[in-house]
Design a protein around this nucleic acid. Structure first.
Lengths: 251, 251
DNA sequence: AGAACCATTCTTGTATACAGGACCCGGCCC
DNA sequence: GGGCCGGGTCCTGTATACAAGAATGGTTCT
């Protein structure tokens, strides 16, 4: 057991084949090609993806950890079916974890440089929100929104918090931009977007002012926007196709 | 891709070899045999555990997911070193997640049967706490305490919440009984135990009374007992050996 | 005709062989 | 003497062969 980390052996990090397997299987799940409850046979995936069993097997194990697959009692995995309640819980949990990140950032104090980065990002987002609607502005908003949530997860300076926030976000319908695609088709989209941006600023203000409880409450309420959008989407089945991973919803 | 779940093929669920690998490697880590920062070479583990590379490899991947190992940039894994802050964050996070479980249980209402089970357990724990100190009472308390936290994680009726609570508890120093071993050697042990038991009852009362905010706050404060014990242990180095996984603390 | 039994086939778990790259150490040349 | 080069060793990533259990379908017996 050597101590030195070694630089790189074999493939490159999450090597080519393993990465292909992970992305390939995940895509099959979130795209709905593999239906909920369906068994994910290693051999079938080997045929479909053109890889060997080893990386496929690793991908299955990781996706089971992520929660997209469930382990069958006798071995192997099946695509997990999510109920409305599961999705709501995942969103709630994201709110709780982001709220914890925000609270800790406020209580412990975040580095000024990090806060400045958030402020600059929010100023850019202000421009995007004010701009006339369109594909361009839409894509910019999604990217900026994701970046805000990424910065927020890091703001507490805790690797553990960041890891756990990122983890819950891997669920395809729990991410901060999961329902934005569908939102865009709703008439109230711009209102929702503006409300979200207002909450972004309030969170920053609370963190800068060391108001931990306020920052936490704001982050939770912010995640609730996603839940409201979830319900809107479920009432309007035509939108469901635009939400990645909603094929996993058991209806 | 067949639909039927199949009953069992090959080994038995988390089969013999895979389970041996997982437990074996984890024990090597938490027992301190493998030092923090040390590379966990697959071959070395194969030699030491007498298994083949496949189950060892699976165990390494899972332990990396759990956070006990960190992936090295060029491939492979090393034992992760935890700082005091990491441990404090893990405890804080357990408080947050258990707090969420308690709050949701209160808000949504838990099944009466589940609440009755908690009450019976707490009544048994009352007896244990009142009993004269000794090995027997000590072991009973640890078992009962773990069971209380397990029931609490399930009380919200959300699989996701339960999974995430159980997940953070896998970190060896974040579990509800992580520092109890050390506590037992402290003069104030019985006081701490009684205080904890009082919080247990208060949590149940809050959940039954649908007082979500109170239940959440209590669960967070309850986890803080562990943090206080952590600090006590760190001031008293002689106790550190009694806490499993504290060998991972970078000093 | 219906039920029981057996072989086939499909599945995963496990072991192992092969390949490519990195590090280390020794030797060689300037 | 110091720097550079090259072989050996070690590591992981990948592919594949082997084993054992379970479901399935056909066949056969009553």
């Amino acid at each position: 057991m050597t101590i030195r980390p070694r630089q790189a052996a074999g493939g490159s990090g999450l090597a080519s084949q393993s990465l292909k397997a992970l992305l390939g299987v995940r895509d099959l799940i979130v795209s709905g090609t593999a239906r909920p409850g369906e068994r994910m046979s290693e051999l079938a995936l080997v045929d479909r993806l053109g890889l060997s069993r080893t990386p496929v097997r690793a991908a299955l194990a990781q996706l089971a950890q992520e929660g997209l697959l469930e382990a069958l009692p006798g071995g192997g995995y099946a695509v997990r079916a999510f109920s409305h309640g599961d999705i709501a819980d995942a969103i709630e949990l994201r709110g709780v974890l982001e709220g914890t990140a925000a609270r800790l950032a406020a209580e412990r104090g975040a580095p000024p440089a990090a806060l400045d980065a958030v402020r600059r990002l929010l100023q850019e987002l202000d421009v995007v929100v004010a701009a006339p609607p369109g594909e361009r502005a839409f894509g910019d908003y999604v990217a900026g929104n994701e970046r805000f949530h990424d910065l927020l997860a890091r703001l507490a300076g805790s690797d553990l918090i960041r890891r756990e926030v990122e983890r819950v976000v891997t669920l395809p319908f729990a991410g901060p931009s999961a329902f934005v695609e569908a939102q865009a088709a709703l008439p109230a989209f711009r209102d929702v977007m503006r409300q979200a941006q207002g909450q972004h600023w309030a969170m920053l203000e609370a963190i800068e002012g060391r108001e931990g409880a306020r920052a936490e409450a704001l982050a939770r309420e912010h995640a609730r926007l996603a839940r409201r959008n979830l319900d809107a989407v479920l009432r309007n089945a035509a939108l469901a196709d635009r939400v990645p991973g909603l094929a996993l919803l058991a209806r």
